[in-house]
C-alpha cells in the first residue's frame, strides 16, 4: 500500500519535472564558453574575472547610465527601465532561468545596452567578465 502510493508520488513528481523543464537552447555556461572562444582570439586576452565583471557592471563609462541604472545593484533583483519605468526581470541566471540561454538574444541585448552605457560595442572580454560575475550572484 505504502510503496504503491509513494511510487505514484514519485511518478507525479517526475512527470511534473518533465513538463516544467524549460526547453532552453543553451545553458549560461555554454554561452560563457562561446564568449571565451571569441575572446581568446583577441590580443591581451585575460582569463574571465568575476571581480572585473562586477566592477564593469557597477561603474559608469562616461555616459549617463551604468548597467545598474536599470538592473539595480543586485542583479538577482527585479530591475526597472531608467527611462520608461518598465519592470525588468532579474538579469542573474540564479534568479531568472531564462537569462543567457540564447546566444542571439545575448548579443542583441549586449549591443543595445552597451551602446546606451558605453556609447560603443562591448568587447568579448568585457561580456565574458560580466557574465562570469552574474554567474557568481546568488539568489
Amino acid at each position: 500500500m505504502f510503496r504503491y502510493s509513494s511510487a505514484f508520488v514519485w511518478l507525479g513528481v517526475a512527470a511534473m519535472g518533465l513538463t516544467t523543464l524549460p526547453a532552453f537552447a543553451q545553458t549560461p555556461n555554454e554561452v560563457l564558453a562561446t564568449l571565451k572562444t571569441a575572446a581568446a582570439g583577441e590580443p591581451n586576452f585575460q582569463e574571465f574575472s568575476a571581480a572585473r565583471g562586477e566592477q564593469f557592471f557597477k561603474v559608469k563609462h562616461g555616459k549617463e547610465w551604468s548597467c545598474t541604472s536599470c538592473h539595480t545593484d543586485n542583479p538577482a533583483a527585479q530591475g526597472k527601465h531608467a527611462d520608461t519605468g518598465k519592470a525588468i526581470q532579474p538579469i542573474a541566471p540564479s534568479a531568472n532561468a531564462e537569462r543567457f540561454t540564447d546566444m542571439a538574444k545575448v548579443e542583441k541585448w549586449f549591443k543595445r545596452n552597451c551602446n546606451d552605457v558605453l556609447g560603443r560595442a562591448c568587447t568579448p572580454q568585457e561580456k565574458g567578465d560580466v557574465l562570469s560575475y552574474l554567474l557568481t550572484v546568488k539568489k
Binding site: D83, K108, K111, R112, N115, D116
Partner: peptide, 9 residues
C-alpha cells in the same frame, strides 16, 4: 530609437 540603437537584424 529615442536615443537607443535597437540593433534589430
Amino acid at each position: 530609437h529615442f536615443g537607443t540603437d535597437l540593433a534589430l537584424d
